[in-house]
Design a binder for these strands. Structure first.
Lengths: 340, 340
DNA sequence: TTGTATGCGTTATCAG
DNA sequence: CTGATAACGCATACAA
């Protein structure tokens, strides 16, 4: 299956020309008389010729593939990002090789390395790998892009969507509703995005918000499990690091008999489709994944063409989407719990 | 980036041996004296050598990649399937090239063809392509696998999880709860899985269930939008073709003031994680995606090794998971609607 | 056991 | 404009 049985040589023979001529008309490079070109095209069609990307890659040094590494394939957030990247890439004739680290930060460098000579470029989506791994990769891999993480240095080139800013606006919303104590259901500690969110909440102390850090995780189950711990701190708002975590928290709160938003407000991050259909519908931050993916691809295209890239370009920031899961803080700012 | 700068020749020179020897120790084929082998390994490490998959592919005819085509990347169902396939594939040293048809059934054949000479095999997940496209592909592509669709003929080899059976059991559940009129929120008409589900519901007429076909679609929005039409048929149960569609229906029913399950029961298909966290939690059919993905990969492995494959192997069937979105049918089997 | 030489399918560089 | 032919990096018969 790897090599189609009909090769450029077959086409050349069928058309009565040299393989060089066939190569020219197929690749569209160089000039060939219309007559010959047509003859070659017919022969190619007749034989059902398809050039071998392998051989072409060996000759040109380009594979027509880009690698995309994500920490979690089961997250709707990354799935939509992949979808967006893949759609853009395909328009430029590139295929997408997908890799998942399954949140094992220490494995990411090796995973990415495993496709080094196989792809023309690599997009790291929210990489959790340590900073020095990232630096090492940036040195050896010229065509590397960091999505939703800014490295400490100026390499690799990166793009992110103003995570801390968005989060700060979410904090302002909550503060405006009278909230003071807000528990942050934190995600993976290796996640730069997660750290940005927490940084924003710490910054919101200046607004009069009192942030409480609760280790949780990004998944639905993580949010569900961390809710009891979070509620023990008697917050009036639960700020989750992700939509799934927020949805998990909603479930647990319902079990606990806590009303949302009367007793406690809940917010997410990402605006996955299920956030809109939660009950109550989730206040969250909308990340424009199609745009973000397209912009990331646009940078990658520059990298592939060895053009200068605009590092850390402006991106439409995440927008706070207010739904029914947030409301005014309850009167007595803290109350005792009356559940078992 | 396509070709690492250090090649097998460099390693050979560094180790003072021929490239053949290097090739042998790197690939682990053929026999090399322990002394030389060690020398080569050291040289390779020192130089940071990584064999070029392209060149190797050209020489061997294998690329170490498999293509995976799905109709929708934004569906949690397919994402988890991809995750499972990718994990299995990686264990065997294969990379995964992901393609999405975005539900354009007529594009699927061409999409798959675009990676013909680039991969060693192709897994078609719930392909929507017409049957003759499927047949044509099966003829030209020896290493093709059909996941969650049985072709009309006996090629390509296929694996599916007993969709109609599972659906029939769901119907039995509803019938046991006293339901008679059940509206089926149908998915994409090109989807074999969707047709299987409807076939099961038609079969359930023998049980005394009266199935009503309502065109909808597989997404949350599809389910949301089709709910009004479905409710106009005065069913006591809404049977959705997918979990997302069911969740969309739940949202619309809440807006309409219909209580679930008191006024109407709702079921989904797939058991995505958000089904469990819906409100009310969704009764659905659990598809064991990790197992299914692993089994599919196991078949693909046989195909790659040119071993005989067991076509349509037994698979753990989908299980009905009863949650709070289903309940006894309301007394007056049909009632008039009192909403605007 | 080791090395030499050829081929894999294309592109690209040269001559003609 | 066209056709030989040399890479590309690796695997592998074949020879030593």
């Amino acid at each position: 299956m790897a090599h189609g049985r009909v090769t450029i040589t077959d086409v050349a023979r069928e058309a009565g020309v040299s393989i060089a001529t066939v190569s020219r008309v197929i690749a569209g490079r160089g000039s060939v008389s219309l007559q010959l070109a047509e003859r070659v095209r017919l022969a190619a069609d007749r034989l059902g010729y398809r050039p071998s990307p392998l051989a072409r890659g060996l000759a040109t040094g380009e594979t027509g593939m880009v690698g995309v590494l994500v920490p979690q394939l089961s997250s709707p957030y990354f799935q939509e990002l992949i979808k967006a990247i893949g759609a853009s890439a395909r328009q430029d004739g590139y295929h997408m090789l997908v890799l998942e680290s399954d949140d094992r930060a220490q494995d990411e460098a090796e995973l990415a390395a495993s496709l080094y000579n196989q792809v023309d470029g690599i997009i790291l989506c929210s990489p959790r790998m340590p900073e020095d791994d990232l630096q090492r990769m940036a040195e050896s891999r010229p065509r590397l892009l960091c999505l939703n993480r800014y490295p400490v240095g100026d390499r690799p080139p990166a793009i992110a969507h103003g995570i801390a800013d968005s989060m700060l606006r979410m904090c302002e919303l909550l503060r405006g509703l009278g909230h003071r104590r807000a528990a942050f259901l934190s995600g993976h500690p290796d996640s730069w995005a997660n750290r940005e969110r927490w940084r924003a909440m710490e910054g919101a102390a200046a607004l009069g918000l009192e942030p409480i850090h609760v280790p949780a995780g990004p998944t639905v189950d993580d949010g569900y499990r961390a809710t009891d711990t979070a509620m023990a701190t008697e917050p009036t708002a639960l700020v989750a690091t992700s939509d799934p975590a927020a949805l998990g928290a909603l479930t647990r709160l319902r079990e606990l008999g806590r009303r949302v938003p009367e007793d406690v407000s809940v917010t997410g991050y990402g605006d996955i489709v299920f956030a809109h259909h939660a009950c109550p519908p989730l206040t969250t931050i909308r990340v424009h994944r199609p745009e973000l993916g397209a912009q990331a691809w646009s940078m990658m295209r520059s990298l592939l063409a060895d053009e200068p890239v605009r590092d850390r370009p402006p991106v439409r920031p995440g927008e706070v989407v207010v739904r029914a899961s947030t409301g005014p803080a309850p009167d007595g700012s803290t109350r005792s719990r009356d559940e078992a």
